[in-house]
Structures are given as C-alpha cells and as structure tokens.
Design a protein around this nucleic acid. Sequence first.
RNA 1: GGGCCCGUAGUCUAGUCUGGUUAGGACGUCGCUCUCACACGGCGAAAAUCCCCGGUUCAACUCCGGGCGGGCCCA
Length: 779
Amino acid sequence: MQPQFSAKLEATSWDPKLEAEMRQTWEFERIFDFKPSNNKNRNFVMDTPPPYPSGKPWHPGALTQYTQIDMTARAARMRGLNVLYPIGIDRNGLPVEIFAERKYRVQMRKTPREEFINLCKHALDDLEAYMIGLLKTLGISGDYYNKYRTDSEEYRKLTQWSFIELWKKGLVYLANRPNNYCVDCNTTIADAEIEYEELPTFLVTNTFKVKDSKAELSVATTRPELLVACQMLVVNPADGRYRKHVGKTAIVPIYNREVPIRAHKSVDPKFGSGVVMVCSYGDYNDVMLFREFKLKEIVAVDLDGKMMAVAGKYAGVPVKDARSQVIQDLQEMGVATKVEQIQHRTPLCERSHTPIEIVPMEEYYLKQLDFKPALRKMAKRIEFHPAMHRQILLDWIDVLTTDYPISRRRYYSTEIPVWFCSKCSTPHLPKPGVYYRPWRDEAPFKKCKKCGNARFVGETRTFDTWMDSSLSPLYVTKYMKNTKFHALTYPATLRMQGKDIVRTWLYYTLLKSYQLTGREPFKHAWVGGLGQDSQGRAMRKSLGNFVDPEPIFVKYGADAFRFWGASEAGLGYDFRFSEERIAGAGKFLTKLWNTCRFISSFPVPETAELTWTDKWMLNELGKLTQECVAAYERFDVFTVATKVREFLWNVFASNYLEMAKGRAYGDGATKGEQEAAWYTLHTVVRSMLLLLAPVTPYLTDYAWRKLYGTQSVHLEAFPKPQRFDISEKVSQSIMEFNAQVWKTKRDKGLALKDPIAARIPANLKHFEKDLVRMHHITK
RNA sequence: GGGCCCGUAGUCUAGUCUGGUUAGGACGUCGCUCUCACACGGCGAAAAUCCCCGGUUCAACUCCGGGCGGGCCCA
C-alpha cells in the first residue's frame, strides 16, 4: 500500500469478540430508550412475543425470529420513528411447572402450593437470566430497563382485571362439559394445545350379542377399557348389513348392560366391522353422539387417569394397563375375536406428550363463538406480512365450535379472582385493580349477596396462560395505568410472531382486545416461518435434532448469525439450520469489513466533480437504497440482506472498485478525478453501513464510528437515494465487458496486470479511461 | 377427507402476479491464481429435462386444467 494512505481498520477480518465491547457502549449510551412522540404517527409500537422459559437450550429458530424482530425495530428507528420495543418474559403456565418438577425432583400435587410456587420462581429466574443473556448477545435492542414479566403483580392485576371486565359483560360462564384433559399435567387443555401423532395401538374386535336374537355383532374399538362407559352401538344408515338391527338392543360384554343400536351418518362403514361403540368418551365423535342422542354419560376415568369404581375389577388401574387387562380378559372369554396392531392418530398433550382423555368437568368458559364474524372482519383489516398467513387465522376462526375453556387446575399461573359462598355457592368477584390469590387470601366480602352467609371459599383454579399473554398489547401500552401513554401507543403498530402460534397468541389477542376495547390491537401482523433442522423437520428436544445456538454465536458471532437468518428464507417461509451457511454469512461480513478497511484509507471529500463511472455507481446505489428502504417498510429483511450482498460483492467490489481503484490512488488521474473516486467510494460504504445497520448492528456500528463519526450508526437515518440518468443496459454492458476481459486474459494465460488489447464497446465511451487503467488495455 | 404453502444444479434460493434474456445469486465441488482491501480473497469451470402430463399461445419456468411429491395446519 502506498504510504500516504493508511486504513482506519487494522485486522483483515471482523472479530466477533468486538461485539461485547460494542454492546457495552450501547448500554452505556442508552441509545434505544423509547420516548413517545405526541404525534401518534411517529410512534412505532411493537407487540413482540415474551419468550417462554421452558428449558435449555433455547430454540435456535426462535432466536432467529427475535433477531428479525430486532432488525425491524432498528430499521424503524432509522426511518426516524420512536420505537417502543418491549422486552417481556412469559412466566406463567405449564412448561415452567414441568421444568421445576424435573429440576427439583418434586411433584406439584404433593408439594404445598406456596412452596411449589417458590420453586417455580427459582427455576424461572435461572432460565430468565439465561434467556436475557442470549437476547443481549444477539444484539436485541429492546427496552431491558422496563422488562416485564407476566407473573408480576402488575401484570396479573391486569389479567384479573380483564377477567372481571369480561365477567361483567356476561362473556364468562361456568359449565360442565367433556373436556380435553391431560392426566399427567392434571389439567384441562385447550384444543390449540393438542397435537396429533400416529401411534401404534391395538384394534380389538369384540362380539356383542343382540338381545332376543341369535345375531351377534362384531365391534372394533381402540378403547376396550371404555366398554364400561358404552351407551350405544351405531352403524351407518346406508349400511345394508346392519339395517335389520337398528332399533334393537345389544348386550355390552363383561358388564352385561343393555344398550340401543342406532344409525348415524358419522359412522364409516369401512372402519373395522362397520359397527362402532359409543362411550363417554373415546373421542370427539362420542361427545357429539352423546349430545345428539341425549345419552347419559358414565364417567369411567378419574382425574389421575385411573379407572373408577364403576369399572368393577379394573378400578384404580391406570387406563393403559386397564386396556391390556381388558383385552386379555376379553380374549379369555372368547369375546375378542381379533386383536391387531394398527397406527392410530392419537391426540396428545402438546407439553407432556400424554394421550388426551376426554372427561366431563366444570370449567370457566369465555364466549368466542358469538364473535366469529367480528373477528373475521378484524382479521381482514389487519395487514398481514406475508399476506398468505392471514389464512391460518381465518381457517381457525372458521373451525371453532366451542367456547374457550379458560380455567386450569395448576399452581403457577394467574389465579382466577372468584370466591364462592360456602352455603349457596354463588360466585363473587372482587373489585378490579388488585392482585388476588383466592386460594390463600381472605375473601374481600362481608356477606353473600344472595343468602347473607359470611363464609366464602376461594377459587383454586388458575387461568390458561394465553389469558395472560393475550393482553401483551394492552400491557405494553400501559392500559389502565397511563391514559396518555396508552392513547399515544394503542393500537400497536406491529405484532411480530411465528406462524405456529397464530391459533393461540394471535387469535386470543384479537379476541380479548376486541371484547375489552372493541378494536384491533395492532395494524400489522408479521408472521414468520419456523426454524427446522437440516432435513426440514421440526426441531424437537425429543427428536434429538435440537441445535444449541450458543457455540454458534461464540464461533461466528451474532452478526453472522443475524445475517444468515435474514438472508436464509423469504418473509414467512420456514428455514433450515445449517452451520455451513452461517459460516458463509460470516464470509460476507469479512468482505464487508475489508471493503470498509480499504476505503477507510482515503480522505472523505465534501463534494466532487463526478465522472461517468461514479455516476453509474451512485445510480446503482440509489436503486438499491430505494429497494431496501421499501423492503424495510414492509418489514422484509430478506430482500435487504440478499440485495445488499449481491450489490456489495458482485457490483461494487468486483466492478466499480476495480475500475476506480487506480484513480483513487491518483494513478494517471487529475486531482478532481481522484477526489471523485474517493467521494463515491465513501458514499457507497456509508450507504452500505447504514442499510445493513439493522441486520448486522455490531460490525456496522464499529466501522461507522471508526470511519465517520462519534455517533452510533443506529442513531442515523437511512441514506437518501441519488439518481443519475444511466440506463440499465449500460450498467449491464460494463459488467459484461469486465467479465469478457477477465475471461480473455484467463484463456490466454495472462495475469490480470498484464496488458491486453481490447476494443471498448461504443456505449461505454464515457468509461473508457477507467476501463483502460483497470485492465491495462493497449490500443 | 379439507385448507394453506411449496416443488428451479449436491444444498439454499431469485425470477412466476405483469409469458419472450445464454434461467440470476449464494453455499459446496473442481481448476488456476497470494495482482499493492480481503486466500474467509480473485478469476474461471462443471453442475438445472425450471416435479410430471395435457391445454392456451407465434412463444410457458411463468397462465389454465389434471396428476405426483413435500411441509404445516385442521377434521
């Protein structure tokens, strides 16, 4: 390098260790604080998913999503907006309890409630520290100073307040209904928390005698232990084989009870023998048939998943064992004529992977069916990114058939603020605005308003966790707490989340926001794809394909991980994990770094008399800038990352830089031409750093401060695009001509610095001087 | 069974809405090359019946119909 030019960056590659230093600077300067503008339109309010501490390691796909959320926040700041980017931790619910049970080797039901809650808190604090640490490592620029927790008194107060409001509006009711129940988690669960898996099970074909006849019916079932709860046999009305039996009575084996034989169109004549037993409750079709035929339910399974007394000799036996025993007994009795193993689509609890039982229980319900039309309208009003994912929500709204069961029989969740009169059982709700623990606290009433009794029993149940998290847009905009702040920030600008929780978090947020405020909680919804393993399968701890992201951050740095995440998949599409590709992103950062390093050795002129080559480059840069800023406005970081990489590497570095290099060194150029090269080089580097700042915040800020100033790049605005009248065709010709010369030299075995004779195309006349110098062209 | 999305080189993708280019780029592979920003570089090469079959059209990766395959979700 010529002595008069020396670079402001020394190392030949970006060192990820500098990220920690940069992070400390940000924290010290507090550059990400939110100051609300009195002009509502200047406030960019983000409703981001408070992560759920459920164990280590954290899902790398989720972390990718958090980096994309962060890019959007940073981009909004650079668009001059005041950005509210909350950091929350969702600390309520099942995963925490399961984690605590495992960690401290205790069982929730055998531990005093207060004690178990404290264990959960402990476990949560550990996990939370781990998670916050990772978020910071990744450069997430949220508001850590106002970090919120969904299990805080403040938050739970709001959850309880919302419940009391909904109760007052008549939207909550108690009802005894068959419910999805997990015998491991000991709680009811919502439809949204069920997953299905094909599992091996026995299909048992039993013989039922038809009363007052010699006829026998073969009945196939996967749940023979529920014979005790069988109340009917059904066949398809169109099935000629059984038409003569419809209306007659069959005898249930083992229990010798009489049940009717009926016809219903829901029966598949091709399943088993075409005769199905209906019991309380094998599946949802049973529930429907019990309702339709007004059958009397027989409760055979208790809340611990054991057979009840009504099951006779099987009483006290867990369902699964009872099933084996029953099968054996049926075989010995000659009732079971066939036992075959089949794959059966089994509903499982999403958290514990235990098969769901359907048992009747009294639970609280929040009305939702009445709101389907309003929700559908709202779903259409909210702008989805990408638009295609709106369909997930619309489909879900369409298939809802029951109201939302909101109560859970758990400990570590927000308590349902209700006391019952000990005499007449009338429910009493307290005044909102206080955090209540009815299982522990004295009732805040003197007398029952109905019977005058002075004693109350506190509700022990808690809320489903979505009852808390669905309030996030209200909580972060200080609903019920700061009217002015709320008015300036609600509805939020943007909800960002994964497509896996559209049916839960997104849906319940819309439902409750509508019920409480009558309007949509946010204007835009960004619905991201999911991170999968290298083969495109969901990443699950149970599948053993889970990647621990931490070593990756250490090895490649957060910026490489971020750039990879941004450039890997288009907005809303799933993406696969690949360390190789993260390493590839790291190479791009090296390229960016060295571009900055090289150009940092030249002075920064205020203005310049541009040559055609410079105008061409600045015009290309202008087009890129426009595209990228537009992409950021659509919350699309994929376009930014891929276009910038393409531009920087293949257009700027390969072509312009080589064309202008000699001129920048002053090689056969006038002072003015030299300065024009400097000016253009710096303009491009400046723009590169600004456009990439949201994506790779560490490297860009480090380089920015070294090259251009004292202030963080994150406090700057995006550059204004410059345009010059240079056609796309000329641009292509330049790059084609360069490639042509390179290829010719290659074919002739010449080094790049060797002279070569070449004819410069007519439309590149203006660029002749730079081209000749670059390729050492002799005439 | 239904819905949504997707099927482009070994892998990941752009392009498809608004039909016409030698189908662009990245990772990986191979060859040459340490040329004064970068060998985590440069240059080049190989590598794609654009899932299949029909239709529309002068012309289809692109539009239409029908298959097949994958993913996610619902029943």
